[in-house]
Design a protein around this nucleic acid. Structure first.
Length: 300
DNA sequence: TATAGCGGCGCCCTCTGCTGGAACTCG
DNA sequence: ACGAGTTCCAGCAGAGGGCGCCGCTATA
């Protein structure tokens, strides 16, 4: 519905309802309703940019572009304010796009999967996951990437001299990526309400990093002590074998002669020596008297 | 009639951050 | 040798900035 106090404006408005476009661009055959529109269009062909910015070298085809540019780059005036947060933008379309992050509206539906995006660019970018297109190539190693940002990180991490590093403020661990530092903090330095017990003593912790550091202090302890004698060792599996010397347990049986052993390794040696025809016993010969020994220990 | 001002659509870009598999380390 | 934990890495989506171009209206 158009209304105007002036007849000329009304007549001009009526023209917008006709498909009449009498002004032809002789370079691309596009037609325009008014001379001004044609001239602006011709400027895009010739590169003529009459509207020059007073604060930088940029110049534009239309005055509107110049105003917008100045708002973005120089005045930072943002007339479009979001009613739900502090966001403000130079353009109405940007506010419209921003509001979707509040409403969750996703008007751009992918034709191939359930994904829908809030703006056209994200949908276009998403479509690369279906097409497999990787438009960004690393100049150094020619690896290809779906997004420019991913390539940028790749170049920074793989081909740059001053690779940025992120140091954990709690334990001084150096991590290559900021997001991985976040994962590190989450996994190792987050307070957990549930108690985490030390594997080797009764200490309890609420932070994984503290627990791990504490457990390392047990590293050189012979923390496995035999209940029946003074024997102590660092590894549980050694204690398991030792305890058999007290219980008499011999769980490994030779299938050829039914002889039993405390350790699997002893059974293997026995089988090789007495039941394996290809077995050749090692002989340690004394270089002085020529006497032979079956084991290095005896030779010594 | 020309121009300023504004709005709208589209395109491309950067920065940011999460995710999951690969590679590696360590007990 | 093995498994669990940790870090590396590419993939991918969210959010926002900046510009190109076109159309419309108001006004000088």
């Amino acid at each position: 519905v158009f209304s105007s106090s002036r007849v000329s404006s009304f007549k001009r408005h009526l023209k917008t309802h006709t498909s009449e476009r009498p002004h032809l661009c002789h370079l691309c055959l596009k037609t325009f309703r008014t001379v001004t529109l044609l001239r602006n269009h011709l400027n895009t062909h010739t590169g003529t940019r009459p509207y020059k910015c007073g604060d930088c070298d940029m110049a534009f085809v239309t005055s509107g572009e110049l105003v917008r540019h100045r708002r973005y780059r120089h005045t930072h005036e943002k007339p479009f304010k979001c009613s739900m947060c502090k966001y403000a933008s130079v353009e109405a379309s940007k506010l419209k796009r921003h509001v979707r992050s509040h409403t969750g509206e996703r008007p751009f539906q992918c034709a191939l999967c359930s994904y829908a995006s809030k703006d056209t660019y994200k949908l276009k970018r998403h479509m690369r996951t279906h097409s497999g297109e990787k438009p960004y190539e690393c100049r150094v190693c020619h690896a290809r990437f779906t997004q420019s940002g991913t390539m940028k990180i790749h170049v920074l991490q793989k081909h740059s001299e001053n690779v940025p590093k992120y140091e954990c403020p709690h334990c001084a661990t150096i991590i290559a990526r900021k997001s991985d530092l976040r994962v590190h903090l989450r996994n190792l330095h987050t307070y957990k309400a549930a108690e985490m017990k030390c594997r080797y003593c009764s200490s309890v912790f609420h932070e994984r990093y503290a627990l791990i550091q504490h457990q390392k202090t047990h590293k050189n302890e012979k923390r496995f002590k035999c209940e029946h004698c003074d024997y102590a060792c660092k590894q549980e599996r050694h204690m398991t074998v030792h305890v058999r010397t007290h219980t008499g347990e011999k769980p490994f049986t030779c299938l050829s002669c039914n002889k039993c052993f405390r350790q699997k390794q002893l059974l293997n040696v026995h089988f090789k020596k007495y039941h394996d025809p290809s077995f050749v016993p090692a002989v340690y010969e004394c270089p002085k008297c020529g006497k032979g020994f079956s084991r290095w220990v005896l030779y010594e």
